[in-house]
Design a protein around this nucleic acid. Structure first.
Lengths: 221, 221
DNA sequence: CGTCCAATTGAAACAAGTCAATCTATGTGG
DNA sequence: CCACATAGATTGACTTGTTTCAATTGGACG
């Protein structure tokens, strides 16, 4: 699912011939791709790197709504609303494929397979968002962090040590915690030997142990 | 959006003729319509009443993922997955319209307008789920409850006092709080005259005040 | 070598959960 | 019509979880 092109079977040339121009662009670390509230003009597919989708509250607090990996889509809400509903900020240097929303909409109307592919990703995003609601609503801080780390390294099955560009603040904004608390829990996990961290990479020696840590009465409410 | 039929313009007879049989069913208060993990066979549109969508954690905790009002859809995830991803339980007596998923899928493939309508609702659900993530991740208990109450009464603009079938436990499971804490905050709101409650109905004298209460440094992280 | 930013740590304040007791409304059967 | 049983709501005292503030450490980089 994730990582499969939405242009089921179409080559880039064929897509271009259908009237959309497609640009590959590179964005360096920590750079906004678009801002919450901006008029939505482009959608993107993430070819390489990591991105956070952030919503800000009036009182200056930020919440990371979703984290995107290789193969994920962003900006597609522009197909239904005229403005972006969150800010997209790179966590690493990223390679993106930029698509025009108007052309994408027209094209996907004509090609049901493309429409379906977008549809499917949307449904998947809803599923993940609902899982996140459960995490945030029903688990304590340490369990939230532990399950998140398990999922993160699970997204990099090939490597022994997964790249980990997130700061403590990013983790806090994703999990609804203060950076200090995140820091303490991370230190705890390392002390228990459940987690190693070096130079922007993390490694979980035995994810079963971490999972147990995560479940061990990580309850709330 | 909410409340509009997905069968854009088609009469029930036309829908039936297209090969789907449609049943109106009534379900009394507190009854499960389907369970998390059940094979998905039907989808429903909610004609009348209230429903909670619940996910359970292994350790026996429950999280209400979404609350449905008149006009909302449920069970449509069955179009993409073969099992229901949450349990649906009535909060009141409800009138539902039951649709066969297989037939619905076939029909919506043939009628792009129907497909689009479902698509649109899905997108809306994602939007609301992301808003909920922000609520849960970035606000404190009292602010979460206050904004929720505002939204709830906002869904019943016609009445002066909105029907309110939720128990304290429901509120807790929706907002990620203990029932006791919910009870205390509700008592506080009433003490401040921001909220009245009688016999399964609530009334917010001035929603601006409650909103202020909700925003007044309702920060976290 | 000094600077800067992120991470860590500690102590204290605050928020929320837990447990237990009480209260209230509601419905039931006598 | 009343006594009682029941389930949800409330309240209080206490414990635990989390944030806040402030100070310190550590690493990356010029």
């Amino acid at each position: 699912m994730r990582g499969r092109s939405i242009f089921a079977g179409l080559s880039r040339e064929e897509v271009c011939e259908l009237g959309m121009d497609v640009h590959d662009i590179h964005v360096p670390t920590g750079t906004p791709i678009y801002h919450e509230g901006d008029p939505a003009q482009y959608a993107y597919t993430l070819r390489q790197g990591g991105i956070k989708l952030v919503k800000s509250l009036p009182n200056g607090h930020a919440q990371i709504v979703r984290l995107l990996h290789h193969g994920d889509l962003l900006g597609f809400e522009g197909l239904r609303t005229d403005r972006h509903r969150h800010s997209a900020i790179t966590l690493t240097g990223t390679d993106l494929c930029r698509l025009e929303l108007r052309a994408l909409d027209a094209l996907s109307q004509r090609l049901p397979a493309v429409r379906e592919a977008i549809f499917a990703r949307w449904q998947q995003a809803l599923q993940e968002a609902e899982d996140r609601i459960v995490e945030l609503g029903a688990k304590k801080a340490d369990a939230r962090l532990a399950t998140f780390l398990c999922q993160w390294v699970g997204a990099y099955p090939q490597q022994r040590a997964a790249p980990f560009p997130l700061t403590r603040q990013d983790l806090g904004e994703f999990l609804g915690l203060s950076t200090e608390h995140v820091s303490r829990i991370m230190a705890d996990l390392k002390r228990h030997g459940l987690l190693h961290e070096h130079k922007g990479h993390i490694e979980i020696p035995d994810s079963r142990n971490l999972f147990l840590y995560a479940s061990s009465d990580g309850t709330r409410a």
